[in-house]
Amino acid sequence: MPHRTFIAFILPSALAMLIFIALPIVSVVVQSLFIEHERVMVTAENCGPFGCKKESHVDEAATAELRRDQPLGRFNGLGTYLDRKHLAAKEVREAFAEASGPIDFLTRVGSLPLYKALGFTLAYTFVVTPLVLILGFMIALAVNALPYFVKGPVIFASLLPMIITPLIGSLILFWMIDANGIIGASLQALFNDPDLSLKASPTLTWITLMVYGVWHSAPFAFVVFYAGLQTLPHDTLESAMIDGANRFERIRFVVLPHLMPLAIFVGLIQLMDNFRVFEPIVGFNAGASATSLSYAIYTDLRSTGAPLFGSAAATSMLTIIGICILMAPVLVRTWRDFKRRH
């Protein structure tokens, strides 16, 4: 296709991505280097019958004017990145100096906001992704063995957790695990512990969120694997049977290798999607015991009073760098494939 035609066709899409994805990244970089203005203080001498007293108070008008003139705030360099809410350079150094051992060090660092969010995000990503693959594969195998006429309804029901709005899905589960909801109450009865609450303990909250994550994404893995099972190489399976492979050897040597590219595809998509985990934390109202990187940005942007643009931008930058590291092996592989093909 001639270059000129190509440009004409791609232009709307490319412009949309350039203006609303690439430029905002630049904007994030710039914003992360700035910090909100301090409030303008004025000192006035207040003289009364008992002598004069110096009082300082916020000059609201001057503060508003300053904010209007320089909306970005004041230049802060990499300060925001290094402060306590982000990389917390000082605190980490202190923890390193004072910690009694590696566990103590990790506990100390893990209680810092960014590392806490990073810890949950990574734990969520790397627990949910493999579980989704395994559960999805098992459902696919089981559905594949069902008689034809029930497959349609089963697939219909299986799609629901995935198609549902994440926030709504997590709300539905949230109500069910409420101490007065069906699952919460049943669990209390089961463990005979009237104070048991899935919301109270951080560990249980983590587990709940991850269970939600698997519930939400397993249908996706299932559908892809199920489609893969429909295109199994029959010749190879049959020759494996003739060569004497039993059922499990056939799965091991023919089915799994056939599904491997699909597993990589699902795993990649899951890695990207789980790394941005956000809505369930809002839905489960779990911000106290589990925060993710996305959630941290959200709370900065929605913070009462003025949004903390600088802080949100710094976390965003760190998140973007994180996703790039996560994606690097994939990109390198795609590039190699491309080089080989051309």
């Binding site: 296709m1 270059h3 190509f6 791609i10 490319a14 991505m17 609303f20 994805i21 690439a22 430029l23 905002p24 990244i25 630049v26 904007s27 994030v28 914003q31 909306p71 970005l72 990207m272 790394f275 941005r276 956000f278 990187l293 996305s294 940005i297 959200y298 900065d300 942007l301 949004p307 643009f309 949100a312 931008a313 976390t315 965003s316 930058m317 998140t319 973007i320 996703i323 790039c324 996560l326 994606m327 994939v330 990109l331 795609t334 590039w335 491309f338 051309h342």
Partner: peptide, 30 residues
């Protein structure tokens, strides 16, 4: 298109696809 830039556009799109939406939002808001 068989041109090399088509490949790069797709790769850029893949990276954009991986980016958590909320990170972009902090770029838009101000």
């Amino acid at each position: 298109s068989t041109a090399r830039y088509a490949f790069w556009i797709l790769i850029a799109a893949l990276i954009f696809r991986a980016m958590p939406h909320i990170t972009l939002l902090s770029g838009y808001l101000l």
